[in-house]
Design a binder for these strands. Sequence first.
RNA 1: AGGACUAUAGCUCAGUUGGUUAGAGCACCUGCAUGACAUGCAGGGGGUCCACGGUUCGAGUCCGUGUAGUCCUACCA
Length: 922
Amino acid sequence: MEKTFQPADIESRWYQEWESKGYFAPQGGEEAYCIMIPPPNVTGSLHMGHGFQEAIMDALIRYHRMAGFNTLWQVGTDHAGIATQMVVERQLEAQGTSRKALGRDKFIDKVWEWKEESGGTITQQLRRLGSSMDWTRERFTMDPGLSDAVQEVFIRLFREGLIYRGQRLVNWDPSMHTAISDLEVVSEEEQGHLWHFRYPLTNGEGHLTVATTRPETMLGDTAVAIHPEDERYAHLIGQTIDLPLTDRKIPIIADDYVDREFGTGCVKITPAHDFNDYEMGRRHDLPVINILNDDAAINDSAPEAYRGLDRFDARKQIVADLDALGLLDKIDDHTLKVPRGDRSGVVIEPYLTLQWYVDAKTLAQPAIEAVEQGNINFVPKQWENTYFAWMRDIQDWCISRQLWWGHRIPAWYDDTGKVYVGASEAAVREEHGLDDKLPLHQDEDVLDTWFSSALWTFSTLGWPEETPELATFHPSSVLVTGFDIIFFWVARMIMMTLHFRKEVPFHTVYVHGLVRDIEGQKMSKSKGNVLDPIDLIDGIELEPLIEKRTGGMMQPQMAKRIEKSTRKQFPDGIDAYGTDALRFTYYSLASTGRDIKFDIGRIEGFRNFCNKIWNAARYVLMNCEGEDCDQQDMGELELSLADRWIIGRLQETETAVAQAVEQYRFDLASQALYEFIWNEYCDWYLELSKPVLWDENASSEAKRGTRRTLIRVLETWLRLLHPFMPFITEEIWQTVGPLAGKSGATIMLQPYPKADPATVDTAANADIEWLKDVIVGVRNIRGEMNIPPGKELTVLLKNGDDTDKSRLELMAPFLRKLAKLGDITWLSAGEDAPVAATALVGNLEILVPMAGLIDQDAELARLAKEIEKLEQDLKRIQGKLSNASFVDRAPAEVVSKERDKLQAQEQALTKLREQEQRIREM
RNA sequence: AGGACUAUAGCUCAGUUGGUUAGAGCACCUGCAUGACAUGCAGGGGGUCCACGGUUCGAGUCCGUGUAGUCCUACCA
């Protein structure tokens, strides 16, 4: 074995082996366990959020697979309508052509080409993380089977009246020329202006001043509204104004939606271009004048002067024209929320169009009940509130998109516009008895990507066929996801699955936090603070990292700033830490209910942990390979106290890990493993094994017992650790497993360790704790007095009882080796002791004679420190016990505990003071 | 405007139904090539648990108010 752990070569080797041997496929077992991957964008690439999420799912999957469940991790990718179409459109643009120039069919061919070309990136990256998903079952949302499911759902919902077509205001993306849902609009505060315009009254008696953030929409105004109780304007209700720049007269209406305090208290009403105005228009039966075309340029409903102008150019022009007419009152600075498309980033327009909708209110009801009744549980629980809040006020879901990449809507129209919904044109003709000569054309639109995602848990298992997989693995066990897609995806899956399967899609929703950078900022390409999980695994030099972060930057100043901060944060680039270290870092940070600030320092610590594991295995193998480790229970055997102790501690660790995983506390699981492996197995047990293995006088039974324990405990915790660190554990297990008497080709299909409380030896635990206390006591003196660790010490033990004495006899070799002691002398009562530095373990005094070794003042200082600690503690305990109400009201158990403590501390204090006195008198 | 979450060591974070002296990793200080590991070993320093008030024999933990920060939903023409 190499002296240090080298992750790179073993990782690719093992993943390939696992996959090619089919280990990821369900292996049978009584109970099924299933996780559906949140399908990543097929043309996307891995980011830290994926890394975190996949690590959690893989731990759950490997854990349950080893625990004997029939385990399926269903993998697949999403066609990601808008995102993917945008990428391909940009490529075409770069090639000097366009989607429209190509035409629908050729364009879709191009997207498929791009999918084939780049679709392997994300799936290869998932493999790098060690994720043990069943690749033979990989699905894509536009696979024939899944497309059938989409069509089936659409048709059935339509027939049930739960899908309908309607003309209303939608969020329109003028760059993509498509409607998008409310969820795809992100509103951020931006600096803007509030323009005040004077609208002249038709009767010539002055004007009303209206305030607007969107001057260009005035061309579509069809009223001015005031509050019905606003005395300033009450007399004007029912009159009209002459809308400037047009030849229209529009009414002054009263509506209590108007806020009297805001602006002038007069609002221009543009029903075609504002959601609130649209509602008001309906209440007052106002005309709806749409002044925009699909590009959000001014259309022919507007006066000629503005036709064809982009909305923002039109804005400037209109402001200038009104100013020229003396109708511009003033311009105030104003911050407002600007709605932008989450993909395109352009300003979204409320736009009147005909779209398809899902009746979400009806579907939401059972979905709300499922969570209320506990058929689905959110972890952490508070996310249920978020879910309820949204579901109880849910709006109908606009599902049609004016895109080409996606599932085309299975609806056909005749020349009169009558709609026929069915699986195909032929099916529609047949069903409705339509003549072959009657021309039909299919709806041009596709469905929202999330429509197919909503079916993911059952469409991937073969629905609408009643497949065996569906019967076995649905409902799935747990959904692991981020809070950002609770509405987009989780809620819609619950609705659709309950409707079509009459069962929940999953029993638990584990909601993890967002991975942020060290400053708590969201990682984003534009901020240049993105960490690529692959770079943490493989490492990356500084220059390529800078290139990666600044490449394709629009603004050069931005690039400069990013370069600077990158150079500062990673002066030497990023080391190669390996997948296991990265995964363990994720687990250690995965406490529930909070986001994750990713600290590069922690991954380094876990890389070191990998190295520790590696070297522990080297030590064990050096001492056990080719030796009799008694795995067949053949020979006489003697287990040392240390052997019995570590076996017990292993059981406790197994319990802790199992409990943590059941509660999705991967941070606690990783911590329990880390502590056990490093602080107990390596720091103490391996050291305690040396006095046995290296002692020529030790019996062969004892040596066999220790070797057997070394190898067995190691083999067990390798299995215990495997779901979290799959690669290093597999690599080591290949050698260790057989030595421990295990057969099998891979650790990943071995049984997961289960605690056996019967093997916890409490007496051995107490003995080893005593031993540790004594050793630490001596080491403390050594450390504080700067006595070199190599220098052998003489100690005297004083005031011990029979237990101390028998423990000493039993464990003297351990004590000698680990504390580096020479003579150990047991002082009888009343026997004189030399002046010495002292450590206390209970009543037992451990004396290290000072002569020639220890500086008087240094020991006095050390004692003073100990004494002060004790005194402070004592004061607190005395205070407590002299408080009558504490003694009366606290449980007797607590009180007696305090009394015991008081006594022990008092004794210790007395002893240390005596010591202090003796040293002073030296 | 409504709601959620967070505040503990220099940094990143644990801390269970309230009950020993509030913990870990990293960083820091001291010593050490000790035959698995210097990606290591041993020892050590470091905390007004955001503030105030309340409940309680007892509060990092429960309740209230406030401050700071993060986020979500709705929305201001």
